[in-house]
Simulated assay, not measured.
Amino acid sequence: MRKTVFVVLLIGFCFQTSCDDGDILTIEFDFDDTFKTCGDLVFYKTKSDPSESLSLAVTDVNFEDLFDVMPGETLNVTSNSNTFNYRTYSNTTLPSTLFCNDIPPSEINIKEDYESANDTATFTITLSEDDNDGIPAEYEDLNNNGDYEDDDTDNDGIPNYLDQDDDGDNVFTATEKPNFTDQDGLANAQDTDGDGTPDYLDTDDDNDTVLTRDEESVDQDNNPTNDIKDPNVGADYLNKDVALSVPAVGYREHTIYQTFTISLYIENVNLEVITQDFDFGTLDNSATSKTRTLTPDF
Rank of each mutant, 00 (worst) to 15 (best):
A57F: 02
V77S: 09
L66S: 13
N82F: 07
F43A: 00
E52P: 09
S116W: 14
S53F: 00
D113G: 07
D40L: 05
G12E: 15
G12N: 14
N101L: 07
L66Y: 12
I24L: 08
T97F: 09
F43N: 06
T122F: 14
T17A: 08
D119E: 11
D30C: 12
E28N: 15
C100A: 01
K45V: 06
K36Q: 02
D60F: 02
T17V: 10
E52S: 03
I103A: 05
D32C: 01
I103V: 12
T46G: 01
P95T: 11
M70A: 05
C14N: 13
N109W: 06
E28S: 15
L75E: 06
S81M: 02
T34F: 03
T78I: 11
E52G: 03
S18W: 06
T97V: 09
S96N: 12
L54S: 09
E112S: 14
T34S: 01
Y44V: 02
V7D: 01
F31D: 03
F99C: 04
T78A: 12
G22E: 10
L9N: 11
F35L: 03
L41Y: 04
N62L: 00
I110S: 15
D30Y: 07
S55W: 00
D102V: 02
I103R: 04
N91S: 08
C38P: 00
P71L: 04
L94M: 10
C14R: 11
D21T: 13
F31V: 10
T83I: 11
E115K: 02
T74E: 13
I24W: 10
D40I: 00
T93Y: 08
S90C: 13
Y44Q: 01
P50M: 13
L66M: 09
D33F: 04
F99I: 02
S48I: 09
D113S: 15
D102F: 04
